[in-house]
């Protein structure tokens, strides 16, 4: 299993190949389109994170000792960033999720999307991922 750090470095490598913002955003848009959707039964009011601009849904499940996240958004660029976050945080041990940070987002030129004033739901989403990790960590102990 790749560690979170390894995945983050892999993503930074991938993004370093893009020459301009268009390539970067086109890649994210394509990721957003390919993101496996959250199952309809989990796309509930309870799982919704309301940003002022876009909405995000997150669902988490504990498989043995790792957490599997699925998510969705009504905006495709938000969804593309979710796809990246899920690639980093999903199928990891709760303690690894709790230790990880999201500094790699800076390195791939998407920092503005994780600004608290952006109001696209992503900052709250990361908080939510960590909350799930805390909850499952407690359960595992």
């Amino acid at each position: 299993m790749q560690t979170i750090k390894e995945i983050q470095e892999e993503i930074i490598d991938e993004f370093s190949m893009f020459e301009d913002w268009e390539e970067r955003y086109q890649y994210m848009i394509d990721l957003g389109k390919d993101l496996p959707l959250i199952e309809a039964q989990y796309k509930t009011e309870d799982n919704i994170i309301k940003g002022c601009q876009s909405k995000v849904w997150v669902h988490a499940e504990l498989n043995n000792d790792t957490i599997a996240f699925t998510a969705d958004s009504d905006a495709i660029i938000t969804k593309g960033i979710i796809a990246i976050l899920i690639r980093v945080f999903s199928n990891q041990h709760p303690s690894a999720i709790l230790e990880a940070n999201t500094d790699f987002i800076d390195a791939i030129g998407l920092k503005e999307h994780l600004s608290p004033t952006r109001a696209n739901g992503l900052v709250s989403m990361i908080k939510q991922l960590k909350m799930y990790a805390i909850a499952y960590q407690t359960q595992l102990n």
Binding site: Y25, I76, I77, N120
Partner: peptide, 21 residues
């Protein structure tokens, strides 16, 4: 297409519009 996506890309092109409700 969600307005947030359009606004985000327009900003990349130097165009300031408002998106949202």
């Amino acid at each position: 297409i969600h307005p947030y996506d359009v606004g985000t890309l327009l900003d990349k092109m130097g165009i300031a519009v408002r998106t949202g409700h």
